[in-house]
Design a binder for these strands. Structure first.
Length: 160
DNA sequence: GCCAACGTTGGC
DNA sequence: GCCAACGTTGGC
């Protein structure tokens, strides 16, 4: 199956690129997702899939790094932990409700690709991220969008 | 800080 | 199974 591409939103106040860079092997499990659609996307992911690492709640919000999926979906341990804010009493170990994948940082972009820039980019007009009211924290990204954003993130912003 | 959009919950 | 109420997300 062909490599697929995804966008992961993170709130850098909670867990952003600087946190990911400090993780052992710059790898982390993506825990705490409590939205079924986002969960289902994680369950579709394959090792090697590409990840756009996005900071929300920043001024401006922006894609800041490239990562990749290095472990496919498995149960989110926080759902079983009564002390976790992600604890889910309705989930059971026999039938875990929530999943995680592991992602590893590949590289920070040379320059952040901001949301307003993306809105101005004709090649990106169909992106889920740019849809009004789009709140999904994990979204599929088309191959052409992936390439375009990577190009925009190189040292010099190319002409549109 | 505001508020629109969205998902979830729970009463009926 | 509908839908109003509520909580959350996230850009602005």
């Amino acid at each position: 199956m062909a490599t697929r591409f995804w966008l992961f939103k993170s709130d850098p106040d909670e867990f952003g690129l600087s946190h990911l860079m400090k993780c052992p092997e710059q790898t982390t499990l993506w825990d705490g997702v409590r939205n079924y659609q986002a969960r289902n996307y994680m369950r579709e992911m394959k090792s090697g899939d590409g990840v756009l690492f996005y900071h929300s709640q920043t001024k401006p919000p922006a894609v800041v790094a490239i990562a990749k999926v290095v472990r496919e979906a498995y149960p989110d341990p926080t759902q079983f932990d009564p002390l976790s804010k992600y604890h889910d009493a309705k989930s059971s170990r026999d039938e875990p409700r929530w999943s995680v994948v592991d992602i590893r940082l590949e590289s920070a972009l040379d320059r952040a690709v901001t949301l307003p820039e993306m809105r101005e980019e004709p090649a990106l007009t169909d992106m889920e991220l740019l849809r009004k009211g789009s709140r999904l924290s994990i979204q599929p990204v088309r191959s052409a969008e992936w390439k375009r954003i990577r190009a925009m993130g190189r040292r010099q912003a190319p002409k549109a």
